[in-house]
């Protein structure tokens, strides 16, 4: 009796364990799969937005005027010093109500902002600060002689970036960028706190409805873990590819 009790207690909480995860109308499999797709889409778009901000930010920090550098320094310091959760709450509320105040001022009706877009923008804004630092460090790690040589060949700044800076910095940037991707996939879980139904909140609702907490949280954890492990493989392959021809580390 005790052993059976513990098995049900930990693995399933209640009888009906495998069926509840089915894709049928009574199971939660389809809800979880849909929520996982939303989480991953948000992560991809936020990562892309962060990468865009990061490229502009890194170039601005290295080659911009003194003013640009100060502004970017303020941005990266501020974002990295305040917890992500608080930034998400602030930007989520400030972004929506600020936009509505502006719209009201301009004479338009107020709109409700799509949680998906707001999530992408907020996470992208936070990611941008971290990507800026990663890319800046990667560009600075290129031996200065290589860039001087490119300049001596008379390459235009764009050609120099495409042929020399970009390929040379990739091997320095990819470990950091891989880390940021893992952070953003897990960061999407924070959107559950502002009430947006992505994987974590969908899990919470399903677990609350069925009282099968262990089952659902372990399934959600396994989905996140799969994404992480697959991405690690992908980034490992990418790093080997951009490092080909270079001496091995250590």
């Amino acid at each position: 009796m005790p052993r059976a009790f513990f098995f049900w207690g930990i693995m399933a909480d209640k009888p009906g364990f495998p069926e509840i995860l089915s894709f049928s109308p009574t199971g939660y499999g389809d809800e979880l799969a849909w929520a996982a797709a939303i989480s991953i889409s948000i992560a991809i778009l936020a990562y892309a937005l962060g990468l865009l901000i990061g490229i502009i930010g890194a170039l601005g920090k290295l080659g911009g005027s003194e003013l640009t550098q100060k502004v970017l320094h303020g941005y990266t310091t501020l974002v990295r010093a305040v917890p992500e959760l608080i930034l998400i709450l602030l930007l989520f509320y400030a972004g929506t109500s600020g936009l509505n105040a502006l719209l009201a001022e301009a004479g338009f009706e107020s709109i409700t902002i799509n949680g998906f877009i707001a999530g992408v923008c907020v996470l992208g804004f936070v990611q941008g600060a971290y990507s800026t630092e990663v890319l800046r460090a990667a560009i600075q790690a290129i031996p200065i002689g290589q860039i001087e040589a490119a300049r001596a060949y008379g390459m235009s700044p764009f050609l120099q970036f495409r042929r020399i800076t970009l390929p040379a910095m990739l091997s320095f940037a990819i470990p950091g960028m891989a880390n940021l991707w893992l952070i953003v996939t897990k960061g999407t879980a924070l959107l559950a706190v502002v009430g947006y139904t992505e994987l974590t909140l969908a899990t919470k609702q399903a677990a609350g409805n069925t009282k099968m907490y262990f089952t659902f949280y372990i399934v959600a954890g396994a989905i996140y873990l799969c994404v992480t492990l697959l991405s690690e493989q992908g980034f490992g392959w990418l790093e080997r590819r951009v490092r080909r021809g270079q001496r091995a580390l250590t």
Binding site: D13, K186, G187, A189, Y217, A220, G221
Partner: peptide, 21 residues
């Protein structure tokens, strides 16, 4: 496992899971 899953999921697994166990 710890590094591959969000802290929020770990926290809720522990709080709601153990809390109901």
């Amino acid at each position: 496992v710890i590094r591959g899953t969000p802290l929020l999921v770990q926290l809720w697994l522990i709080y709601y899971g153990l809390g109901s166990l």
